[in-house]
Write a protein that binds this DNA or RNA. Structure first.
Length: 742
DNA sequence: CCAATTTA
């Protein structure tokens, strides 16, 4: 909780309400930086803010606002600043001073109730008095909307956004068409709109409610990775969510399609005789069509910015490469190199240990040797850093490459393509539909796009399964799949079982030197055994360091065998509190020297080249005088954290499997119990197991493992991308309605 | 129920 007077706005993103401001806490000292959704707060206003203290690499300590309420200023200084902030048309700082000099703390009351008395203020004529009264009226209208909205449970910041959007019509819109808010106002979703609608007496089965509910159902399904829903399923889901009958839903969907609130398209299904009626949210349909269009355009472009490789002597090229890298390419790798350099779109996939990295390095070396301009990127900061180290060329996150800001458009697009002959994206399994579309649109015709990733890993956070779709049977996108495992561990149980899991078979857990199962049914037991395995059994038997070499990976964060609980238990076992151990409390956690920790946000300013989300380390020192904590990262860097920056760190004895994507560890311990039954899917277990270089220990029940192995989750995402690519047809969509149409 | 990116 922070009470302070808003001094000035430093930055405001109108698109999404993100605001940076300076506030005065009244306790003397420097102004405090606050960040968050503060749109609508005015300088001079007294704010009561709920939130957390955090830090920013460049801008230092700051308060992150989760929620706030505004209070009108009650002191002379406060009122002076409030009136003089430009909030009220016609009043500047000087006039504000005059008004407050004259009326004192009653100034606001006077303006509110007896605005005609303003004429008493020296140098204030009747014309300006009128102007001020009118401007105050407008403020009053905002307040009225707010009071009304608060009566139906909407927060101040949302009320301001609503007013900004509809002005005088605000109350009207809220009363009569509350579901418009869900579409028009950022930060208001169906649930909020529905609450308002109920409060203003909109019937439960009103067509507007059902239409908004259909869009909401689709939007919820994107959270499960779907780009569309089959019409039947959409209607059934919506009827259930909205608690209305199916007939009303059928009618509403027809209307919604007709007014282009969603897009309905027949696309081929699993059964070629039985097309699926796919219903999309409009932006997802546009993105899917656009991505497919762009990939087809790139593939067929007449120009070729790597034309030199069309006539290259590949034998000579191989010899050159061998001299440079000191190793030969395997046949499949060789094919991948040629594909990337001669075809304008290509995909390279394969599991860990198959030589993807070496192949990528070879491709980049050869392109660079011919003077080609190569741009490298990855969906995460850490993957980008690894790509940099691998190739010796700078790599960026896809967001940074495209200069993509939240809520805004990318700086690089079809109208302003990237200046590159070859664009390489690593960890492409993490590309979702919307990001892949933005990326593809920014690749110039004639340039080459190479996507590299492991298609069997977890699919992207966002909707779609782009890499999987590009690799689907019958698409025109050329690809190479590396399958041969080069690691010395090729014969190991880890690799064998990774393949078995991928094939839907139960892993072999007996008679292997590097793959074990500790069987137990209850999650609590699994947690205890996991701690014993990490702290005692693995160190004794394999001589591994429990902090540095062993990583616990869990399906879930919560639950008795979740990452949260295990972090507590493992910290107790490995880094207990003691009289000589310095520690520092932050949030609900305590950091001690010896703790295994992980960075949880990209920080481009720490370390030599940045410390990125997912980087692991061990706390090596804690200085209560300097108020710093020192971490030695797994990349061998020593990084210092201010105590105020501890929000960038979390304990990392146990991580969720999702967070472990793209990392490898000598030994991995995985609790797999039925308490995480919702999460148990084949590619989750595959991802966990393939993180291990030497040793895997599963702890849990055979039932849970069996469930994971049999749940072929990937491919259950509804997307039409593979179909569009197979059709090889470039589709023109009408441009989206712009401001000109409004 | 899991999860990445980005703003001064």
């Amino acid at each position: 909780m922070l009470d302070a007077v808003l001094e000035r706005i430093t930055y405001a993103n109108e698109e999404n309400g993100y605001t940076v401001a300076k506030v005065d806490t009244g306790r003397g000292g420097d102004l405090v930086t606050v960040v968050g959704a503060l749109l609508g707060a005015q300088p001079g206003e007294f704010l009561r803010m709920r939130g957390r203290w955090g830090s920013h690499p460049q801008h230092g300590r700051q308060f992150q606002v989760e929620d706030y309420t505004q209070v009108l200023p009650a002191t002379v200084q406060g009122i002076r600043r409030y009136l003089g902030s430009g909030l009220i048309k016609g009043i500047g700082p000087r006039l504000a001073e005059n008004i407050v000099d004259h009326f004192g703390v009653d100034a606001l009351d006077v303006i509110d109730r007896e605005p005609e008395r303003l004429i008493e203020v020296p140098k204030l004529g009747p014309k300006r008095t009128k102007l001020i009264a009118a401007a105050w009226e407008e403020q009053r209208a905002i307040k009225e909307v707010m009071v009304f909205l608060q009566s139906v449970g909407v927060s101040t910041s949302l009320a301001v956004k609503i007013y900004k959007k509809y002005k005088d019509e605000s109350v009207d819109v809220v009363r009569r068409e509350p579901y418009r808010l869900a579409n028009d106002v950022w930060g208001i979703g169906f649930r909020t709109a529905d609450t308002i609608a109920r409060a203003v007496g909109i019937p439960h089965d009103a067509p507007d409610r059902i239409k908004a509910g259909l869009q909401y159902t689709l939007s919820e399904s994107t959270g499960d990775g779907h780009c569309y829903l089959p019409e039947q399923r959409l209607m059934a889901d919506a009827a259930q969510i909205l608690e209305v009958g199916l007939e009303g839903v059928i009618d509403a969907l027809g209307e919604l399609v007709a007014e282009e609130g969603v897009t309905r398209e027949e696309i081929p299904g699993d059964d070629p005789e039985q097309p699926v009626a796919a219903v999309y949210l409009v932006p997802f349909h546009r993105a899917e069509v656009s991505l497919s269009n762009q990939l087809l355009r790139l593939l067929d472009a007449d120009a070729d910015r790597l034309a030199a490789f069309g006539s290259v002597d590949w034998d000579a090229a191989r010899r050159w490469l061998r001299a440079r890298t000191g190793a030969d390419l395997a046949p499949a790798q060789d094919e991948a190199v040629r594909l990337a350099l001669t075809r304008k779109v290509a995909v390279l996939t394969g599991g860990p240990g198959c030589g993807k990295s070496f192949t990528v390095r070879s491709i980049v070396e050869m392109a660079a040797a011919k003077g080609a301009k190569v741009l490298l990127a990855a969906p995460t900061g850490r993957a980008a850093k690894r790509l940099t180290e691998l190739t010796g060329h700078p790599a960026a996150t896809v967001h940074r490459l495209l200069e993509l800001r939240p809520g805004g458009d990318a700086a690089f697009d079809r109208d302003r393509p990237l200046d590159a002959d070859l664009v390489v994206v690593d960890e492409a399994s993490m590309l979702d539909l919307l990001l892949a579309n933005k990326l593809a649109r920014a690749v110039a015709p004639g340039a080459h796009l190479l996507l590299v990733g492991d298609v069997d890993q977890l699919p992207s956070v966002g909707a779609g399964q782009v890499l999987r779709d590009l690799l689907a049977e019958g698409t025109p996108v050329p690809h190479v799949r590396l399958t041969h495992v080069f690691r010395q561990a090729a014969q190991s149980g880890v690799v064998t079982n990774a393949h078995r899991i991928n094939a839907g078979e139960f892993p072999q857990v007996q008679g292997l030197p590097d793959f074990f199962l500790f069987a137990c049914d209850e999650a609590e037991d699994a947690a205890k055994i996991t701690v014993d395995v990490v702290a005692n059994r693995i160190p004794r038997r394999f001589g591994l360091d429990p902090r540095v070499d062993v990583q616990v990976l869990t399906p879930m964060h919560r639950g008795p065998a979740g990452a949260g609980s295990l972090n507590g238990l493992l910290q107790e076992a490995l880094t207990p509190s003691g009289p000589g151990t310095a520690e520092r409390r932050f949030g609900g956690r305590v950091f001690r020297v010896g703790d295994k920790v992980s960075q949880i946000r990209n920080n481009y300013d720490k370390g030599a080249n940045g410390v990125f989300n997912g980087t692991l380390g061990v706390v090596t020192a804690l200085d209560p005088v300097e108020q710093t904590l020192t971490v030695r990262t797994d990349e061998g860097e020593t990084v210092s954290y201010d105590f105020a920056e501890l929000d960038e760190l979390t304990h990392a004895y146990a991580l969720t499997i999702h967070r472990s994507q793209g990392s490898e560890y000598p030994a991995v311990v995985v609790p797999v119990t039925m308490s995480a039954w919702m999460m148990l899917q084949r590619n989750l277990l595959y991802t966990a197991v393939t993180r291990a270089k030497k040793l895997v220990v599963l702890v849990g029940s055979k039932k849970a493992i069996g469930r994971a192995v049999h749940a072929a989750s990937a491919g259950r995402r509804h997307t039409g991308l593979a179909h569009r690519l197979r059709a090889r047809r470039i589709v023109t969509l009408a441009p989206p309605p712009g401001p000109a149409d409004a």
